[in-house]
């Protein structure tokens, strides 16, 4: 169903190709062209697009951890905070160049994630959810109070990202930086999901006991999943810090961690397309509500002032609930169905 009628694979390389036919390659080319030309035609939206890009990187990590490996983490915003602060501190206080700080942020967030992932070896489900919430609170508490290093409640100013002489200060230049790193992350995640490690993750997700009996080391793969998932979070945090130019602990609330889970659910867990769709879906609702709220406030003068602040969470919660009940496989599955019916049209099978 994935290939157009009449296309057959004659070699292993063809079988494994992500982009198989000429049409695929042409569509990919068009997509990349459109993405790289975006600052030319969509300049006003770049700040939203940049936020979407950073969130996609973070949620791609959560998808590896939760969607592929089945380890629920409700502390992802905390791990992003670890990455953001690591990178900011390295650049501000030690003068480390940004690309090195980016990698270090990922590595440190990964190690912290692994530490809080250790309980996953003995517990799962609800217990793991709570211990990752605990991780989130402990991380944020440390950031808020370790004033000498993190600047405490007032946060810290961060230099703009720079590679050598290039400084990413304008929205458009930041857009290219984020776009390239997002593409690399998505490509990495896609390939990871079909290697030995990715298949081991899926086996652990589907039944970890059975996986262990088959010879998959739970210790190794669960912690690897935590490391990779939080590595992505760290990279996203570093990008966030160096593009928003100031960070404080308020940027990383628990509600964001829950929202990330919501994004992979709405998009479709355990797919590569899913998180991208989920992030775009949620962020667009967010933008829409922000744009509409003054109008809504005027339209309903009887409701208490400030009521619009509750609309976005209400819609997010509703979306999560409705997707779990009616379309647990998310938007990615809908897209698959659409593609299949498009290929077969006008026949039903």
């Amino acid at each position: 169903m994935d290939l157009p009628a009449g296309t057959r694979n004659y070699s292993y390389a063809q079988d494994m190709a992500i982009f198989r036919t000429k049409t695929h390659w042409i569509l990919l080319g068009v997509l990349i062209l459109l993405l790289f030309a975006m600052p030319a035609y969509w300049h006003d939206w770049l700040s939203v697009v940049n936020r979407i890009g950073i969130t996609i990187i973070a949620v791609m990590g959560l998808n590896i951890l939760t969607g592929y490996c089945g380890q629920l983490s409700i502390g992802h915003a905390g791990f992003i905070a670890v990455g953001a602060y690591t990178s900011a501190i390295l650049v501000q206080r030690f003068g480390v160049p940004f690309p090195v700080a980016l990698i270090c942020a990922g590595l440190f967030a990964g190690v912290v994630g692994m530490l809080f992932g250790v309980p996953s070896l003995r517990v799962k489900g609800f217990y793991l959810a709570i211990s990752t919430i605990a991780a989130q609170f402990i991380i944020i508490w440390v950031i808020q109070h370790w004033t000498s290093v993190t600047g405490g409640f007032s946060g810290m100013d961060v230099k703009a990202a720079s590679i050598g002489p290039m400084v990413f200060r304008s929205q458009a230049s930041q857009y290219y930086l984020i776009l390239i790193i997002t593409i690399i992350s998505v490509y990495f995640a896609k390939n990871l999901s079909r290697t030995r490690v990715g298949r081991a993750f899926i086996a652990v997700r589907d039944n970890d006991l059975a996986a262990e009996v088959m010879g998959i080391s739970l210790f190794r793969y669960k912690l690897t999943a935590f490391f990779i998932g939080c590595f992505f979070a760290g990279v996203a945090g570093s990008l966030l810090a160096h593009t928003s130019l100031s960070i404080s602990a308020d940027y990383f609330p628990l509600t964001d961690s829950i929202l990330f889970i919501g994004m992979i659910i709405i998009g479709g867990m355990g797919t590569i397309l899913g998180p991208i769709l989920g992030v775009i879906f949620i962020r667009l609702i967010d933008v829409l509500v922000t744009e509409l709220s003054p109008a809504l406030q005027n339209a309903f003068p009887n409701l208490p002032s400030g009521f619009t602040s509750g609309i976005a969470p209400l819609l997010f919660g509703l979306a999560i609930i409705l997707f779990i009940i009616f379309e647990p496989r998310g938007l990615a599955h809908r897209w698959q169905l659409f593609k299949a019916s498009y290929r077969l049209w006008p026949f039903s099978y």
């Binding site: 939760t66 609800f126 829950i258 619009t308 602040s309 509750g310 999560i320 779990i324």
Partner: peptide
């Protein structure tokens, strides 16, 4: 169990939004 946990997370979000509106 993953669905059962996340649906209550969604519920929590929904209720918090409701509180924010009312």
């Amino acid at each position: 169990i993953l669905s059962l946990i996340t649906v209550t997370l969604g519920l929590g979000y929904f209720l918090q939004g409701l509180v924010g509106i009312i």
